[in-house]
Nucleic acid binder design. Structure first.
Lengths: 140, 140
DNA sequence: CGAGTTACTTGACAATCTCAAATATCCAGG
DNA sequence: CCTGGATATTTGAGATTGTCAAGTAACTCG
C-alpha cells in the first residue's frame, strides 16, 4: 500500500496543505468579522446568486439535509435568509437571501483577502500557468 | 472596498477553492475509513512523529487548549494515544501515539489519495513549476 | 517565600454533523 | 381517479468540536 513519493511530490503536497490551511483561516476570520460561523458564511455565499432548495444546499455542502435545516434556521433568525415556497413543487423550500443577506454576502466577499494577498505575488503569466496546472490537477 | 478582480484571478481563486474542497473530502473520507473524525486524524498525524504537549497541539490547530483535552480523551479511550508526563515540566502532558496509534497514522497517510491521484497528471517539470508558484504564493 | 504566569482540566453552552422517524407532496401504473 | 413508492423537509436524539470562565497544580523570578 505504502506508495513511496519522491521528495518533490511530498513538498508539493505539503504546500497544498499549507494553502488549504491558509484558505480556511482566512475564511473563518472573514466570517467571524461579521459574526457568522464558517458554515453560515458558506451557505449564505451559495444562495447569494439565486434561491436554492434545501436539498441542493446539502448536496453542495456534502452533508445531510437535516443539517441544512439548522443552519438556515439560524440565518433566518438573524434576518439574512428567508424560506420561500417553490412554485413548481410544494415539497421544496427555497432559501433566498434578504436584502440584508445580500449586503452581508457582498461584504463577506470583499473581506476575503485570500484572493488578493497571496496571488498579488504572481504576475499575469504566472497566474496563467498556475491556472492551467490547477485545471489539469482537477481533471478539467 | 470592493476590489474588482480580473477574470484570470477570479478563475484561479475558484480553482483554489476547488482544490481546498477536494482536499477536505479526501481527508474526511480517509479518516472515516478508519472510524476517525477529521480532527482526530489531524491530531494523530501531528503527534505521530514525536510526543507533543497539549498546549502545542492547540497552537497548531489554532483552537483553545480545552478543546484538545476532549480530542485526546477520545483518542486515548480508543487506545491510539497516551498521555505522558514531561520530565522537564510537571505541568505539561505530552500526547504520544501508542503502537496501534502509530500503525493507524501510517495507514491514514497511505489512504490519503489526494497526493497521488491529481498530481499524477503532472510531469516532474510541471510539479517543479507548481511548487515554485505555491512557495511564492505562501511567501516562502 | 510570594506574586504572577503557565499548563491543563472541568463545566456550561453553542454550532455542526449524523441517523432514524414523521409529514407532506409528487409521480407513475393500473 | 387512486394507490404505492419515491422525494423534500423537518424533528429529535446523540456525538463531536469549538468557545469561554473558573479551578488546580507547577514553574519563575525578584
Amino acid at each position: 500500500m505504502a506508495m513511496r513519493m519522491d521528495p518533490l511530490t511530498v513538498e508539493v503536497v505539503e504546500l497544498i496543505g499549507s494553502v488549504v490551511a491558509r484558505y480556511h483561516e482566512e475564511y473563518e476570520r472573514a466570517a467571524a468579522e461579521h459574526a457568522l460561523t464558517g458554515a453560515q458564511a458558506r451557505v449564505l455565499g451559495l444562495l447569494s446568486l439565486e434561491p436554492v432548495a434545501m436539498r441542493k444546499i446539502a448536496r453542495k455542502l456534502k452533508c445531510e439535509p437535516s443539517n441544512v435545516t439548522g443552519i438556515i434556521d439560524r440565518l433566518e433568525a438573524r434576518g439574512l435568509v428567508e424560506r420561500r415556497p417553490d412554485p413548481a413543487d410544494r415539497r421544496v423550500k427555497l432559501a433566498a437571501p434578504t436584502e440584508e443577506g445580500r449586503r452581508m454576502a457582498a461584504a463577506l466577499r470583499d473581506s476575503l483577502d485570500f484572493a488578493r494577498e497571496p496571488l498579488a505575488e504572481l504576475s499575469a503569466e504566472e497566474r496563467t500557468v498556475l491556472r492551467d496546472l490547477l485545471r489539469r490537477m482537477l481533471g478539467q
